[in-house]
Computed example of a mutant assay.
Amino acid sequence: MRRAAYAIMLAFGIFLLVMPISVPVFHTSADFSVFNTNWNGASKFGKLLYEESRVVPVITSYNSFDLSERKGVLLILGPDMRYSPLEVGEVKNFLNNGGTLVLIDDFGTGNDILEGLNLSARFLGITPIDVFYSKNYNFPEVVRILDPQLGIGVDKLILNVPSAIIGANGSIYTSKVTVVGNNQRELPVMSEVKYGKGKIILFADPSVFINDMFDENEPFIRNFVRYLNADTVYIDEAHHSNFNPYAVGTLVIRRSLDRVKAFYVVLAVAVTAILVESGLALKGVGKILELILGKIFKEEEKSLDEVIEKLKKEGYDESILRKMIKEIETGKKLGG
């Protein structure tokens, strides 16, 4: 009977190690969301981030998330909801503590943060026109990538209705014949600004990172992810106005047997069997119960003086009591 019980314990332990795990799968239709697998989502970009870093989605306000107390990279991609002063304060403290802000925007609400941080850098908010483009002028091609780490294996970077950055130097520029209004000049598409103990990376086209543009820009996107060099990336999903995650099913993860864990399961069952069969387990339980009961029921020992004092109060003669005790101690008989 006991052998059957041990066999069941062993089988159950192994089963827990190899049983499949069902994980719910969520999607959203929000633009630029890493949970969106459609053309306008950034799920492929999110997958690259996950391969290089620990990814934590932020789906609540920064002050509720306690951003200022965290370390790592805050990545904001295509925000379209305003940032409160409290949230900007959290970003400021996050940067002062050594964090990195990656703000990728064009016509959204990213300037709320830059203004709140009292920076001169801004997203231009309009689309510059360049004579070098891919499909049409909405898809300008950028080849001037000054940072060698970002330019590895990149012949060109194709933008998609981009903005530009003003008030800061850049590491990636449009061509020198780019037209903005009545002016013709090169404009930064990517800039990096020091802030406190941290830094801010600005990029003026979130569409570069969407699934529809991924194949064309994959070498650059991979370089960009490595450039971040982050242990933890906090991805802002809270400032996508139509972020509406919904479950579309479950992902079943099948696991192979881990030999080390299986060994520990066998060892645990073997130790249990030895303890039970040898009676050590029962003795151990008995000792524990004995200690517990002893603590509960053990009476405090009283001194002879305390006993005599108690009997004295009940009317006994103290001298007679002490004489009786003395004779008991010396082995004499009463009256001897």
Rank of each mutant, 00 (worst) to 15 (best):
I76F: 01
I113W: 04
V91G: 01
V88I: 15
E87N: 04
D147G: 06
S84T: 15
P79W: 02
R144P: 00
I113S: 04
P85I: 09
I113T: 02
R144E: 10
L114W: 01
M81P: 01
G116M: 12
P148V: 07
V131P: 00
I113V: 14
L146K: 13
P148D: 09
F132Y: 14
L117K: 07
I129G: 00
L95C: 11
I76R: 00
Y133D: 03
V131Y: 12
S134L: 09
P79N: 08
I113G: 00
G110N: 00
I145W: 01
N138H: 07
G110V: 05
D105F: 01
S120Y: 10
V142Q: 05
I126T: 15
R82I: 15
P148L: 08
D105P: 00
V102I: 11
E115K: 11
P140K: 06
G99L: 05
P85N: 10
G110Y: 01
Y137W: 13
I129D: 04
D112G: 09
N136K: 10
V102M: 03
I145C: 04
N96V: 06
I126H: 12
F132A: 09
T127M: 15
P148A: 07
N96T: 04
L117M: 09
I126K: 14
L124W: 05
K92F: 04
N96W: 07
S120I: 10
T127C: 02
L77W: 00
T100N: 03
G110S: 08
G99Y: 04
R144F: 03
D112Q: 12
T100E: 10
L146Q: 11
V91H: 00
G98P: 08
N136W: 12
P140G: 10
I129A: 06
I113L: 09
D112M: 09
I76C: 04
L103Y: 04
V142M: 11
S134M: 07
K135F: 14
S84E: 14
A121H: 01
L101M: 12
D105Y: 00
V91Y: 02
G116I: 08
L95Y: 08
S84P: 12
V102D: 00
D147A: 09
E87T: 01
T127A: 13
I113P: 02
K92R: 15
V102F: 00
L77P: 04
T109M: 06
L95T: 07
F123D: 01
G108K: 02
T127Q: 14
I145G: 02
S134C: 02
N111D: 13
L119I: 10
P85F: 07
F107T: 14
E87L: 01
G116N: 11
R82L: 15
N118P: 05
E141G: 03
